[in-house]
């Protein structure tokens, strides 16, 4: 996987393969509307079918540890303080203080003004700092403000930027505007990885999710992400299924891997395992890695820890034994 990961990381905002497609508004539209349609009933049935997989014993233990390593531990509240972010960052590094074998999470996810604080606590622990930017969550601001927002977070030390697309532009069919926006934010990211949030709850149709996925991948996004967590519905299994099919097909065509991040509403170990089964069977085992799949979540981690303790000790312990941060 290292070869692919290097090439993805260093790729510029546009892939040569798509020059013709993104050359004009009309060619981009033709391409996106020419993607195979999604049958809603069939897509939801497939997701529900995969959700019946029964993951037990060794497979479950593997899935729980992998899920912990994939968590972007998130706090995105108006009431966030430096103290709160420091606490969250400590938790990300050592999710279960009672068990040193418990892996760290992939990242903590905060607003740009909290990046420096998070970075300070995390140091070189290997846990990344992800910052939401571009006038998160609505994305309703002028372009230069979105870019300034992004640069601000990167300068403060963010390793990853979670941007939101302009859903108004997307829904009114101005795909080129969205493409340009993603490409420009990507440039502003510098070395930081870019996750592109669609807010699928606002795009509504699976066809739109598929189109947005291709748009973001062509524009150079490293990750495609379902939701901000501020709009309902947030991540769902069928929406994530469509995105996993998109990254699978994109690699088939370009050889490049793009990551997927469902965010919002994933609260239990059971839910997380359903997502991992889907990653395994739709995109393939190459995506079973924190470099290529993440969970945007806050409460999920504690349930994973409780289940992990249950797996190792054979007993459930109460929620009081796990930290609330």
């Amino acid at each position: 996987m290292t070869a692919t990961s290097t090439s993805t990381a260093s790729s510029a905002s546009s892939h040569g393969a798509f020059d013709d497609i993104v050359g004009s508004d009309s060619s981009l539209r033709r391409f996106l509307h020419g993607l195979p349609g999604v049958d809603q009933v069939g897509c939801e049935a497939r997701a529900a079918g995969l959700a019946t997989r029964s993951i037990k014993t060794t497979a479950k233990a593997f899935a729980i540890d992998l899920a912990i390593r994939m968590v972007d531990l998130t706090t995105l509240e108006g009431q966030d303080t430096h103290g709160k972010v420091r606490a969250l960052a400590s938790k990300a590094m050592r999710p279960d203080p009672a068990d040193p074998t418990c892996p760290a999470t992939a990242a903590v996810c905060v607003y740009p003004d909290m990046v420096a604080t998070a970075k300070q606590t995390l140091g070189d622990s290997g846990v990344n700092v992800a910052a939401v930017a571009t006038a998160f969550p609505s994305g309703r601001a002028a372009m230069d403000i979105k870019l300034a927002d992004t640069r601000d977070a990167v300068e403060a030390g963010a390793d990853e930027i979670d941007m939101v697309i302009d859903r108004g532009a997307f829904l009114s069919g101005r795909y080129m505007d969205v493409y340009e926006e993603i490409a420009q934010v990507k440039q502003a990211c510098g070395d930081a990885h870019l996750k592109v949030i669609f807010e699928t709850g606002e795009l509504q149709t699976y066809d739109n999710v598929r189109r947005a996925s291709w748009l973001a991948m062509m524009a150079g996004g490293h990750f495609i992400k379902t939701s901000t967590g501020k709009v309902q519905p947030a991540a769902t299994l069928p929406v994530t299924l469509i995105m996993l099919e998109a990254v699978r097909d994109f690699r088939e065509q370009t050889g490049q891997m793009v990551g997927v991040k469902p965010a919002g509403g994933i609260k239990t170990t059971k839910d997380a395992i359903k997502y991992l089964v889907m990653v395994n069977e739709i995109a393939g085992p190459d995506w079973l890695d924190p470099d290529w799949f993440r969970f945007g979540a806050s409460t999920l981690l504690n349930d994973l820890l409780m289940q992990r303790t249950k797996m190792t000790t054979g007993r459930y312990s109460g929620p009081d034994y796990f930290t609330l941060d």
């Binding site: 997989r53 029964s54 993951i55 037990k56 014993t57 060794t58 497979a59 479950k60 593997f62 899935a63 992998l66 991992l276 395994n280 085992p285 079973l288």
Partner: peptide
Amino acid sequence: TNIFEYAPAP
């Protein structure tokens, strides 16, 4: 071999 091998679930 797949890293995510489903254990038997009879």
